[in-house]
């Protein structure tokens, strides 16, 4: 039997031992997983970004402009000292600002306007008749949005519309729950498959 499968199988069982109760074997496996994940991420981050985008172009090709992000990156380490930790605000501010700047058009166009347009445009078909299923979308959209309208109390007409919105939300949460159950079960089936085939060789 392949050594890798044996180790993976034993570690799988170690993690499943948590279902009985928290125990040292599970804790050891969990700690190993945390450590390996960080070590793995370090390798990938180091190689794909620090070396590829910084070390080689800056020190190998002499692209001196990259000294700026290098210094900004190093400022992140100032967080380890109370005296200097305010310096880490500078690279954070740079990243937050850049993120905010690019997100404005994306949020406005791709997330808001496109979605509104997709709700309204198909409401009437080519012959001008009302499309009832599309009407459900518009009712659902307006009522759910009014549920999230917090500028005034959900009373009277707005309250009633918002209540309809909660029903739509429940349908969404129900469907999402159903799919989430499906997803988690698939993962479990995957692990059972591994245990029965590669680890125990009960099934070929």
């Amino acid at each position: 039997m392949e050594i890798g499968a044996i180790i993976a199988g034993l570690l799988t069982l170690a993690i499943y031992s948590f279902l009985y109760k928290d125990n040292p074997v599970y804790k050891a496996a969990e700690s190993l997983l945390i450590g390996l994940s960080i070590g793995y991420a370090l390798v990938i981050f180091w190689q794909s970004t620090i070396v590829d985008l910084l070390v080689k172009p800056l020190f190998g090709e002499g692209k001196l402009i990259l000294a700026m992000p290098f210094v900004l990156g190093l400022l992140m380490f100032s967080r380890f000292s109370q005296k200097t930790s305010w310096l880490s605000r500078i690279p954070i501010a740079f990243m937050i600002g850049a993120g905010a700047g690019v997100s404005i058009p994306a949020m406005l166009y791709a997330r808001t306007l496109k979605q509104v347009s997709a709700s309204v445009a198909p409401l009437f078909n080519e012959s001008g008749a009302l499309n009832l299923s599309e009407m459900v979308i518009v009712i659902g959209l307006i009522s759910t949005l009014s549920y999230f309208y917090f500028s005034r109390k959900n009373e009277g007409a707005i309250g009633k519309v918002a209540k309809v919105g909660t029903y739509f939300l429940m349908i969404f949460f129900g469907a999402t729950f159903g799919y989430t159950v499906m997803s988690r079960l698939s993962t479990l089936i995957g692990r059972v498959e591994f245990l029965l085939t590669d680890f125990l060789h009960v099934i070929k």
Partner: peptide
């Protein structure tokens, strides 16, 4: 339809 409508409202 109904589920997507609610999700769209959340998204907006």
């Amino acid at each position: 339809y109904p589920s997507m409508a609610a999700r769209r409202a959340i998204l907006i």
